[in-house]
Design a protein around this nucleic acid. Structure first.
Lengths: 200, 200
DNA sequence: ACCTGAACACCGTTCAAGT
DNA sequence: ACCTGAACACCGTTCAAGT
């Protein structure tokens, strides 16, 4: 409660501060799209028409800025996971969501790398995403469709690595699909009797 | 022929130049070990007792310096691949070599990331490694042990991604093993009749 | 409170001057 | 030829001064 973002969402900020906050976010989205999450913070401040120190006041670290910009997308990704729990095929649902995770990690260049670096410290986003994925994974495991020794953290780390690798490629989307296909194959149970096979 | 490294290996350099070259390499190994491949080039020059401009003369880019430092290790890795062609189990051989590739990519912090970035442009090292891996993969494919749609470039990219991910972890070695196990499982044929299963 | 621009420390790279 | 240190441009961060 009473965290900065609470203050920002409610109308408690001074009018000029709230305006600067919005301008900084708009500028950040534009800069991240163009130059990736490591875009110059100075440029973002300039494009927003404020000094760099103002940016630091609103967003003390780059991580905070990135997470704020991505907030809606992360929420959507987690919602999608909950919706997919109703999908009849447990592996199909898991795969579909992992595709979405890869796409999410590729929203901006450098995001996958940033997420991997941050996973050592703990961030709210990764906890949220992990929790959402855990449900899908457990369901597939109980159906006998994925090997029992696969754990969410490992799986998401690997999927994030796939996103990172595919990003450094001329055709990120296709590359991501191919690498993810290998990973999905690797987590599924071998025994064809138990559980279902992946449908293409 | 007559490339700088040829000059350096033969005794054609001026005595002081050759001495500086060696000192720079020693300093680089030490700095890379301590701080990863992105270690300060200025520090390396200082530790070698030369000016930074001398470093740039010998090694125009960081990539050149890194590749020179790693030359012997890359040769050993490729030799190992050729030796493993005599191993009775094609998948076993492939897996053993991929473990070595992961370890290689973790020689210095940041190396896996650097390799991934460089793979877009072409470097001699990655060509060498790809060629060595191709032989092992083709053998396993012919034995029906790995799926026919797996290609070397994809596989090595994924394995490098595993090395990168595991590096950003408190227990890189164990993490690398676990993620690699998933990948290996993913490239193998599903049909238990064709080909052999992985032995633990 | 919030903003601002200047100052700071730290990169990698280049270049003129020296041997 | 080869080396050297100084200069340069570019980062992110901090801080004193202003409203």
């Amino acid at each position: 409660m009473n965290s900065p973002s609470d203050l920002q969402r409610s109308g408690r900020m001074r009018a000029d501060a709230r305006r600067n906050h919005e301008r900084l976010l708009t500028a950040a989205v534009s800069a991240f799209s163009r130059h990736g999450v490591n875009a110059s913070l100075d440029d973002i401040a300039s494009q927003a028409g404020v000094g760099s120190a103002t940016l630091y006041r609103h967003f003390p670290t780059r991580q905070v800025l990135v997470e704020t910009v991505l907030e809606d997308r992360v929420d959507a990704l987690c919602l999608r996971a909950r919706q997919l729990l109703d999908e009849p095929s447990p592996v199909g649902a898991l795969r579909e969501w992992l595709v979405a995770v890869v796409e999410h990690s590729r929203t901006y260049r450098g995001l996958a790398a940033a997420q991997m670096a941050l996973e050592i410290s703990d961030t709210t986003d990764s906890d949220q995403i992990r929790e959402a994925g855990e449900a899908l994974l457990v369901r597939a495991r109980k159906a006998g469709a994925v090997r029992p020794d696969i754990d969410v953290t490992d799986l998401l780390r690997l999927v994030n690595a796939v996103a990172w690798a595919s990003e450094h490629t001329s055709a990120p989307s296709e590359q991501g699909e191919r690498l993810l296909a290998i990973v999905i194959e690797g987590v599924q149970s071998r025994d064809p009797d138990r559980g279902e096979r992946a449908d293409t």
